[in-house]
């Protein structure tokens, strides 16, 4: 794809979760590394919404933080608009690229400084990058941003505590837009919100995308939300992508057993009375992931090869799938969940 806004090449991110140095010497244990993201490759084309789905500990939030520069990758490269971020050495050199990638966080109560007025929160990116000069012009821009997210200019003079969760998320979005970004990373932007408010925020995100031509990386654990917003979906499990596919293909013909498991857990609102397939086990501790395919202890189709050899992401029926059973054709066709 020529016009990829974001490209991740075999990105890894390790975290040192070792015991303190002295305790390690005394107990004779070595350093322990948590592979939060373990070799992830994908790209996002301009104007599309790429969704990452997975359960806690799968590394999807780490990917989000890698993309916006809150973490440095341990290895691999991240390209924004074709520029490898690592090639820009100083904060100053990175600033113009970084400005174009902004983020909306999960917790609307923690993501706004409680001691700042809303107008100052929204104006912070404008002032930081010197996008507009002059207080009156900045205020006019803040008012415009407030209106863009369906708040009123009068709201700018209040403090965050005066707002509900949904309104705070609108303020967060306005702040992200103030940098005039082309790419937004949305890390579970609606999972702390009530469903009726979630609908408002999802609609707003879609409106803004159409109006401003934004590209989204949308992180969520909710498959129904992902179905609603995304064009392309990546499924993550224990730091690795196990399946990447266009939305329609993924939901109609999920290949990886883990994708199928996730689809099986979606509550049946249509009340068809379908009996759920019993799901086995829980997500293992990511510090000590299983060998081979990390999903093998929970997989009904696992064999010896799955326990030892790590599968790589290969094309299968239009999707990209990391599964030996899929490659060997051992998997039964998908019967459908809902």
């Amino acid at each position: 794809m020529a016009d990829a806004v974001l490209r991740l090449n075999d990105v890894r991110r390790l975290f040192d979760v070792s015991a303190p140095w002295l305790a390690r010497i005394l107990s004779g244990t070595g350093p322990r590394m948590l592979k939060a993201v373990d070799g992830v490759t994908f790209e996002i084309a301009r104007g599309e919404t790429f969704a990452l789905v997975g359960e806690s500990g799968c590394g999807k939030s780490t990917v989000a933080r890698l993309v916006v520069g809150l973490y440095e990758p341990s290895s691999g490269s991240i390209e924004i608009d074709g520029t490898d971020i690592a090639s820009l050495k100083t904060r100053k050199a990175q600033a113009p690229v970084r400005r174009r990638v902004q983020m909306v966080f999960q917790d609307p109560y923690a993501s706004l400084n409680p001691r700042w007025r809303v107008k100052d929160i929204i104006a912070e990116p404008i002032r930081t990058h010197g996008l507009i000069r002059g207080e009156a012009a900045i205020r006019a821009r803040v008012d415009e941003l407030l209106r863009q997210v369906s708040l009123t200019p009068a709201d700018g003079d209040k403090y965050p505590h005066a707002f509900s969760g949904g309104q705070r998320q609108r303020i967060s979005i306005a702040r992200a837009l103030a940098s005039e970004p082309e790419f937004l990373v949305l890390d579970e932007p609606t999972s702390a919100l009530d469903v009726s408010v979630q609908a408002q925020i999802l609609n707003l995100m879609k409106d803004l995308q159409r109006r401003l031509g934004l590209t989204y990386l949308f992180i969520s654990h909710n498959l129904a939300v992902i179905y609603h917003v995304s064009d392309k979906v990546g499924v993550m499990y224990l730091g690795r992508l196990v399946e990447v596919a266009a939305k329609a293909d993924l939901f109609a013909r999920p290949q990886h057993p883990y994708t199928r498991l996730l689809l099986d857990t979606v509550p049946d609102l249509a009340m068809t009375g379908r009996e759920r397939v019993a799901v086995r086990g829980e997500v293992p501790n990511p510090i000590d992931p299983p060998s081979g395919c990390a999903f093998h202890p929970r997989c009904p189709f696992a064999n010896e090869r799955c326990k030892t050899e790590r599968p790589s992401l290969l094309a299968a029926g239009g999707n990209m799938v990391a599964c030996h059973a899929v490659q060997e054709g051992r998997l039964p066709p998908w019967g459908g969940a809902a």
Partner: peptide, 14 residues
């Protein structure tokens, strides 16, 4: 580690 501080870092504040 709160998200408002991370937000400021993403914005590029010194």
């Amino acid at each position: 580690n709160k998200e408002y501080v991370q937000a400021a870092r993403v914005i590029g504040v010194h």
